[in-house]
Amino acid sequence: MHIDWSVTQVYNTIMSVATGVGLLMLVRFGGLLRSGQRISLEGWALGFAVPGFILTLTGGHMTLTWPLSKIGFPFDDIIFGEPSLAFGVMLLAGAIFLWRSSLMSLESGVAAKESKEQSASLMTHLAEAVHPLSYFAAAMGLALISIGIAGMYYQLFAAPPEEPISGRFADYPMLEATFISMLYALTGLGAILLPFSLAKGNPAVLAIIKFCWTITGILFTLFGALNYFTHIGLILNTM
């Protein structure tokens, strides 16, 4: 198998890492808010902005130019590009909100060290501000589940035999199709539940979201890190 790598770009490596870290940061930030611990709004704004920018840039480029279609995988431009773009923009929106909240706190003379009362106030304000955006997140959650179903139905995501490690399972396409599809579906389930958690603050709903995004965040991060090796090997084996 020969691929002309000069005509396309494959960067779902960093997209996967940024997605995983973004999900884990959302879980951690929510936990800090609920526990009343000290929060650096500037720090979390920067933390969300970095993966948000990466996902917006790479997801936007993939969505608008379809680079993977040039090597025979046009459906991957939809699967990887559009969810990354949506998640990236939402992370950037969150970063802007936190940065603005930090500036307002400084102007009002509030110290950066948040007390439990101040954290509770911030959590209430954040829930009210993010609630309208959560409807778009839920809609994208449905899209992620749809992608997961398509992955299983069409047996997508199988690595070519030329790819190290993952390519060893090329003869078992349902294996990787099941793994990646479950990642998408679990992430989507957490997104669908987001509006309900913000409206009611139901502990059971919050626990489900935390479970979904912790598991998928870890797996997306590790899978993306592994792909730095496997994709380099794929390129070298198909040049």
Rank of each mutant, 00 (worst) to 15 (best):
D4T: 09
S6H: 12
V7C: 08
V7T: 15
Q9F: 11
N12I: 11
A18L: 01
A18G: 02
T19S: 12
G20R: 06
G22V: 06
G22I: 00
L23N: 02
L24R: 03
M25P: 03
L26R: 04
F29S: 08
L32A: 15
L33E: 04
S35H: 13
S35W: 11
R38K: 13
L41W: 06
W44N: 05
W44R: 01
A45M: 02
F48K: 01
A49N: 10
F53L: 14
F53N: 07
I54V: 15
L55M: 14
L64I: 12
W66N: 13
W66P: 00
L68S: 15
S69E: 12
G72H: 09
G72A: 10
F73H: 14
D76F: 15
D77F: 13
D77V: 10
P83S: 08
A86K: 08
A86V: 15
V89Q: 07
L91E: 00
L92A: 05
L92P: 04
L92V: 09
G94S: 03
I96F: 13
L98R: 03
W99K: 13
S101M: 12
L103M: 02
M104G: 07
S105N: 12
E107W: 01
E107S: 09
G109T: 00
S115P: 00
A120H: 09
M123Q: 12
M123E: 12
E128S: 14
A129P: 04
F136D: 02
A138E: 04
G141K: 06
L144F: 10
S146N: 11
G148F: 02
G148R: 08
M152T: 14
M152N: 10
F157R: 01
A159P: 06
P160Q: 03
P164Q: 04
I165K: 08
I165Q: 07
A170V: 02
Y172R: 12
L175M: 08
E176Y: 09
T178W: 05
T178F: 04
I180G: 00
S181P: 03
S181F: 03
A191I: 04
I192A: 01
L193I: 06
L194S: 01
L198G: 04
G201M: 00
V205M: 07
A207P: 01
C212T: 09
C212K: 02
W213A: 05
T214E: 05
I215S: 04
I215T: 07
G217A: 05
F220S: 03
F223A: 15
T230E: 11
I232D: 13
G233K: 03
L234V: 11
T238W: 11
